[in-house]
Amino acid sequence: MVLLQVVVSGLLLGGIYALVSVGLTLTFGVVRIANFAHGEFLMVGMFLAWVLHERAGIDPYLACVVVGPALFAMGFLVERSLIRPVIQASHMAQIFVTVGLAVFLQNGALMIWGADHRGVILPYADRVWFVGPIVLSLPRVVAFAVAMALCLALLAFLRWTYWGKAVRATAEDREITRVMGIDTGRVYSLTFATGAGLAGIAGALLLPMYAVYPTVGIQFVLVAFIVAVLGGLGSAVGAILAGLVIGVVEVLSGFLIAPGLQQALYFVVFLLVLIVRPAGLLGRRGAEELVVT
């Protein structure tokens, strides 16, 4: 029974990981950039939600409605100003532009909000539901529900809309897509901005459970990358599944091995995936070898 509780807690955590990772993996698949500043988008989202709560008393879950579009806009601007110039450049230039952005955002946050860990205390933070033998914490259930709804909405968008198809086509073959008359530049902006927006929303959803501080993003970007690699870089469905898997693995290992070492397990999982199946759960074999031309 305890094990069931642990698995459920893991799934609830995994839902948020899925939301953080799905944008990252799409950006990698479409724009072909490993965005090391992705965790900082999440951090900015957390801080925005915190400010809204402190200054205006807005509930972090409601703040999603503001934080999501704000981070979408920020992602759009970043893509246009920083990512676009290096889209044809070397791997090196691409990675270090995003690393530079990450460093800038981390320390910008340090400058504005300081190094303290900050959180919000919601009146219903301790509310739990009893479902049979399982205890469900209200904030985690809400976060999971919103995250999953957004993931499914994203999948539906990719599957059925014109721009969704354009995104998938660009991931498949950017040259051919351009020849077909699709504005791939706009696809890049859209994808990058969506990833940033989703990371921001994930940040707002995390705020009732985790404290925010300027370097909180590093931890999450690592998880997000490991999830993305496990799911198969570029695969949205893979990232969602892998997010749930990693959530369960994290909580399980905290329960079975030692609470402090659960994050150590990420590294082991990551190396195992690279050794056994670098294409990930749902990635196409060889997709990880995509060479930027």
Binding site: F96, V97, G100, V103, F104, N107, M111
Partner: peptide, 19 residues
């Protein structure tokens, strides 16, 4: 004020030099 704050200048230097 805070350790590591000097890095706020480093980020843009890195970006500009790579670009």
């Amino acid at each position: 004020s805070y350790a590591g704050l000097h890095l706020v200048v480093y980020g843009p230097i890195l970006i500009v030099s790579v670009l």
